[in-house]
């Protein structure tokens, strides 16, 4: 079963969009001996080639997590911020954030601290980084921070911040481990991308430089299996989610069908995903150059973009198995 220690290390790493260096260094440590060739491109993407000859396939898992950036200092010890990526205002008050230097801040809301009853606007929120000292800490305008919370396990369920998309990174690393030493029929570029949460910027750059024949993104998707939520068919524990469509991309039917065939042949549990709202690196890869047909293996995840993103370890393993099944055979959609 998927390596929980690996997952914990990845989700606990710090890396808001544009500031993925710590995550990249961590991942480099895991993959240096697995890749045939490894480079970091101008977009900050970590690109790891395995195999050569055959179809060029780009696998994208993004390293960045949603975060925030300080826009102005307020009274000493307090600062205002804006978002990098899709933070959910409803979930922020009382959350803690971590800066690059490990300074911890707390998100608060203007007015009486007791019983806020209305959804705040971003402008009403602030970060308290006060230390009790006179200057109130070292935070400056332009500093980036990410939400922080400890990793937890509840049976088969793994709960953490930034499962989106470190769990995708974990799937990629586990697939690299499984493929190591095999004679690959494809030239695979495992790409750990930057700035996904602010518009798939890393993947776009990497797709242009790799110029692959096909792309596959590994990312989380939402579920429709919580109380009074009948928004979609994907459920936690239902297996790897093979994406059909989301707000940014129609997966070419041939790619979808290849994934289904491989999953069925390998006995991998899967479900089909139709997602409204949200998209992945595959949307950027597919629209690069002359068009690069791209699919997505999605890891079902509850409470996406909160500090309790929850996945099922069996789904994670199914995603790894599906990815390996796709890559160890000729890629022929």
């Amino acid at each position: 079963m998927a390596d929980k220690a690996l997952i914990q290390a990845l989700v606990e790493a710090w890396g808001p969009s544009g500031h993925e260096h710590k995550v990249r260094a961590l991942i480099e440590g895991y993959v240096r001996d697995l890749a045939d060739e490894l480079r970091v491109d101008n977009g900050g993407n970590l690109i790891c080639r395995m195999g050569s000859g055959g179809k060029k396939i780009m696998i994208a898992a993004h390293m960045d997590e949603i975060g925030l950036v300080i826009t102005a200092l307020d009274k000493p010890g307090f600062a205002r911020f804006s978002m990098t990526g899709g933070l959910i205002l409803l979930t922020l008050i009382g959350n803690r954030v971590r800066f690059a230097d490990d300074t911890i801040g707390t998100i608060g809301v203007e007015g009486s601290a007791l019983l806020p009853t209305e959804l705040p606007t971003l402008k009403q929120l602030f970060i308290d980084f006060s230390t009790g000292g006179e200057n109130g800490g070292s935070v400056r305008v332009g500093d980036h921070a990410a939400l922080t919370r400890e990793f937890a396990v509840r049976g088969d369920r793994l709960i953490a911040k930034s499962m989106d998309d470190r769990i995708g990174c974990a799937v990629a690393i586990e697939a690299m481990r499984a493929l190591k030493g095999k004679n690959l029929p494809n030239e695979v570029y495992f790409t750990f991308t930057t700035q996904e949460e602010v518009g798939f910027r890393g993947a776009r750059v990497a797709a242009n430089s790799i110029a692959p024949d096909y792309g596959i993104a590994l990312d989380v998707t939402a579920t429709g299996d919580t109380p009074k939520n009948n928004s979609m068919a994907v459920r936690l524990g239902g297996g790897a989610a093979i994406k059909v469509i989301d707000s940014g991309q129609i997966v070419p039917p041939a790619i979808k069908e290849l994934m289904i065939r491989r999953a069925e042949a390998a006995g991998v549990r899967y479900q089909l995903e139709v997602l409204s709202g949200g998209s992945t690196d595959a949307a950027a890869i597919q629209t690069a150059l002359s068009g690069i047909p791209s699919g997505v293996i999605s890891i079902p995840c509850r409470y996406v973009h909160t500090t309790s993103e929850t996945v099922d370890i069996n789904d994670v393993q199914a995603c790894i198995d599906l990815l390996v099944a796709l890559l160890e055979q000729p890629f022929e959609p």
Partner: peptide, 16 residues
């Protein structure tokens, strides 16, 4: 349109 999920015998759809 595209089938997004089921509600009993009925198909819920989203726009394509």
């Amino acid at each position: 349109m595209i089938v997004s999920h089921f509600e009993g015998a009925f198909l819920r759809v989203r726009s394509l």
